[in-house]
Nucleic acid binder design. Sequence first.
RNA 1: GCACCCGUAGCUCAACUGGAUAGAGUACCAGAUUUCGGCUCUGGGGGUUGAGGGUUCGACUCCUUCCGGGUGCGCCA
Length: 600
Amino acid sequence: MEEQIKQGISDALKALYSYDLAPNDVALQPTRKEFEGTYTFVTFPYARFSKKNPEETGNQIGTFLVENTEVISAFNTVKGFLNISISEASQLQSFVGMFNGKDISASSLFKAKPTGRTVVVEYSSPNTNKPLHLGHLRNNFLGNSVSRILKAAGNDVHKVQIINDRGIHICKSMLAWLKFGEGETPEASGLKGDHLVGKYYVAFDKAFKLEVADLMTKGFQKEHAEKEAPILLEAQEMLKKWESKDPEVYALWEKMNGWVYDGFNTTYEKMGVDFDQLYYESDTYLIGRDRVMEGLEKGVFFKKEDGSIWVDLTGEGLDEKLLLRKDGTSVYMTQDIGTALMRFDDYPGLNQLIYTVGNEQEYHFKVLFLILKKLGYDWASSCYHLSYGMVDLPSGKMKSREGTVVDADELMKEMANTAKSRTEELGKIDGFTTEQAGELYEMLGLGAIKYFLLKVDPRKRMLFNPAESIEFQGNTGPFIQYTHARISSILRKANQLGVSFDDIDFDRVNDIHQMEKDLIYALGQYPDKLKIAAETYSPAIIAQFVYDLAKDYNRFYAELSIFNESDKTLQQFRVALSALTAQTIKVSMGLLGITVPDRM
RNA sequence: GCACCCGUAGCUCAACUGGAUAGAGUACCAGAUUUCGGCUCUGGGGGUUGAGGGUUCGACUCCUUCCGGGUGCGCCA
């Protein structure tokens, strides 16, 4: 439909003013509610070719369109805005095109042409020294949703993560556990593995601070004391031992990481995210180290007097960056070089590698991509940093030291509990088993968090208001889930009453209501929105779309009755419209990683 | 200090990449069910888009100078 209008406008410009504009370059926008019409074409830019004022230009084009383009029934021009009305028959035809009779899930709406591109999306990638928190939730939901969106848009997508299982941070937890742990295990204490290891990371920090304070009373400057605290030196020693594969250290490292992985897996399962392949820093840092040495030989990097290895990016407007410490151990950058290489080896023909990482690391990735380019990998230009803003709380920044971090496990549990009390108030799930009810509460609680975190433009810093996020009204996940449940109820009733749309005769549908036209238009937007969301890596586009769709449906629902409609064909049509709306909500929410219930 | 990002209704967010009188939600006020799920729907007030200047038919959007906030510039990851 849009194509036909664009073609028509292109033809009109050519015929009237001998001006060439490819149909694809015709910019159409939806007509504002207060004006009559469906699509609007802005004529200001073309007044110079028509040699008429914008309004007259609009009138001329409009007249041409009504005469020559079948789908266009009328037009009006306000200043330089040409508002185009679509004939009812064409609108219905557009619906028939989307609607696929019995098998709605196979609707042409949801079919995207394969792009032939292979994309790897990295997300999550936690450190293994503490449990996941609210910030990780945004990361996981964003990366997972972008993966789903890219896949739906026709790409071959692989979800991966790099597990930061080595480094000084895990050594700190290990050391504190040795010193203060008295052999505590998740089994014995009943504490989730990641929480247990996190507990010792905190214990390390506490001991470290005490030592620093102690040194300062002995006359050390703060900076100096922070470098000389015995427990820190011990942790650094441990890291060196780890890199030389000291058996005792290695065994402890494997044990404690094992606890963390068990804990993480439980959390991932609750979150509803998964991965096609896992990478471990402990595997990739060696590859990175080799490539750094190679780069040194080739003269891409240089060695300082103390033996540390650096890259000089002053020519690119950046500064010098460390790649290997003087003691030969690796840094963050070292292993990231190795990880990137491994991925391009693992996925031959990879077209794009997306890193879902917070915006505080923008500089890091800028440097990483430059280094890869300097090393001669031309695929470096296909690496992309999907950068997102931090999550703030009403009280301000999350700070682990001040105990204001919102724990992921706890938050998900609380939201499910809230969903429980809300649902029980409503009393619509009689007949559910305890198990079914439990699943529903988790679906609603999780939907609320996911939607809340994904509806905001990823690039922007956002505020997570716990009180507001558990509200189930307004622009929220549960509102959309509710709408789906409501439509499902309609479809169940239609089924009971034997109202089927299998044999609907669309030729006999006429005089449809504005609400119905709005709904058809909204449904037709799906492919466009998906495309934009994929191009901009933004689930927020989908969230906005599905919210608008739900609102449109609720308006339609409030205005028009289905089962009291005496015209049987119109009744069938409304059921069909409801069915396709339900499916579109389901698919769209699916792109956000949110499931929708039939009853709630 | 240097670099990048952000600033829109009381609050949380939109605005189709330069288009009409800047829209939603929330909160507040007033309404709606002899109807299929009221976690719904309708209406109302609420704005100098941080400030000034520039570009043009037209600016929240682009350029520029300020102001305010954030992040980065670790032999941390």
